[in-house]
Amino acid sequence: MKAYLTRRYMFSASHRLHSKGMSDAENRETYGKCNNPHGHGHNYSLEVTVSGQVQSATGMVCNRMELDDFVGREILQKFDIQNLNLLPQFVDDVPTTENLCIALYDILQRGFTGAHLERVRLEETMMNSFEYAGGAEIRP
């Protein structure tokens, strides 16, 4: 029996949306308030969805403690209470929530072996959220 398990994590970080490829005027026009030179912050809510057959010995798709350990070590410790613009992932890329969502998916996809990664959903505020499944359609 295939099931999908989703775990939610919270972290807070600051960022500034500013593209090196644009003039200052273009940046202000494109990113508005998010281009404020001093940056600003959000409480991010990260949802990680994994899928797989429910194993009869454990009743689980994925051991939650293993997932918590991985996310704690590889994501929360590195992103929580940080300035995203200073992180290696955003040397070239603008730390939009789209790019952050993709970066977090890539960390999980590369490093987490406990279950099949289905998708990552990231809420920047209660009013917006982003989902990424490695470029695939979100299903089912």
């Binding site: 295939k2 999908y4 398990l5 989703t6 775990r7 939650r64 089912p140």
Partner: peptide
């Protein structure tokens, strides 16, 4: 179509039938 069970606000499971 789907059964979703939240154990807490931070953990839920989706099941879409036998597969």
């Amino acid at each position: 179509h789907r059964v979703r069970v939240y154990e807490s606000p931070n953990l839920f499971v989706d099941f879409y039938g036998k597969a």
